[in-house]
Simulated assay, not measured.
Amino acid sequence: MKKMAIVGLFLIVGCVLGYFVLPTLLLPTSEISVNNEADIGLDEELSEGVEFIDESTNFIEQKQYEKAREMIENAKESSDVLLNYTNHHEYGENYLNTLINCTDSLVHVMELSDANDTVGTIGHANKFLVNFSNLKTIGAELTEEHPDIAEKLNIEETMVNLRPVEYDIMDFKEEYETNKTAPLLSISFEGNSKEFTWKDHLGKKWNFKIKISDRRYNRYINLSHEVNESEDILKFVTAEDVQVREIAQWFNDTYSDQEDKANCILSFVQECVPSIAEGRADYFKYPIETIIEGGDCEDKSILFLSILKAEGYDVAFASYPQHWMGGVALKGDLKRVKNPYSGVPIEGGGTYYLCETLDKGFKVGSILEEYKNINPLMLVIPR
């Protein structure tokens, strides 16, 4: 009986091994590794497709639209190849297809904008806005759930490059609908790309990228910079500008504490925006100009206050003879400065703590000794 039981056990084990293992041993190596090869092929095709789109956008920037279309067709071929992989990644494929649609719309937008075909431009611009909205959604999901794939697809860089186009299109449409005539400035893909890296008041390192289109930059250059009275300065605080809001939104993820967040923004303005002498004490710049060009004390204070206001802070200018600072309203005592300048009391509670934007290393509430015994002229920025 024992021998029969042992024999039966061996038969059962043999059947199991024969059913599950033997077919694998008999299969060619290439068929066994098909899933791994599919994954590798998927990565290659996705990356190649995105590279074609990158080349296409380079041609768009050079206004070589036919070459841009050729690259889009190459990207479509990469997308078609993905269908051959049974193990393809749905998000990656959707991202590439949506990026292709986005870029295809962009070629038409730029070409028609250059040709001053306003109606045609807006028609394709609407398609771009829909496609880009979808792209942002898919890109965010990929970044959160599959950061390795998102990095390979260069999603962050793509968003940095396409957001200014989205902003330009929205401005272009608004100008056309408001004035009922073709906007003076065409939609621009060219622009100034900036990458900022710095350490804040607590020594924490930060980094972010932004691109400002030539259209947006030229728009502010062409606006009036005339200041006849102090209230004229208020127009330079453009907290409503979409890219100022973009910067402010980025700082939302730094600190929840209001004082620390204000200090982080202050350190950014001090460290990342060049301090330059303008030669004219009465020449004020808009924040977009200052980000690109740098600026002096009033320009950097305007930028600082614009970001703070976009973040929801109450802010004010502090004017001294031959010098400007920013003021930010905070309640309670400061935590990061041992002996802060007392600041300027606010009716109803709170204090405008002064901020030195020109020189590095100053925290909210700390200012140069030479200004501590001088009462500044405060110009409150309306909410």
Rank of each mutant, 00 (worst) to 15 (best):
M1N: 14
M1T: 15
K3C: 11
V13C: 14
Y19A: 13
T29W: 13
N35H: 13
D39N: 15
I40T: 14
G41D: 13
G41K: 12
D43P: 09
E48G: 11
E48P: 05
F52R: 06
T57V: 15
E66K: 15
I72N: 02
N74T: 11
Y85K: 00
T98M: 08
M110A: 11
S113L: 08
N126F: 08
F132N: 01
G139H: 04
H146W: 10
K152L: 10
E157Q: 14
T181I: 14
P183R: 04
L184W: 12
L185I: 10
N192A: 11
D200R: 03
G203T: 07
N207H: 15
K209W: 07
S213Y: 03
Y217W: 08
V227I: 09
D232T: 03
V237A: 00
A239I: 11
Q249L: 13
S256P: 06
S256Q: 15
C264P: 07
Q270V: 00
F284G: 05
K285N: 07
Y286K: 05
T290M: 02
G294T: 00
E311L: 08
L330E: 07
G332E: 01
P345I: 07
I346Y: 02
G348E: 05
Y352T: 08
L354F: 02
K360R: 13
K363S: 08
E369K: 11
N373M: 05
M378V: 12
V380A: 00
I381H: 01
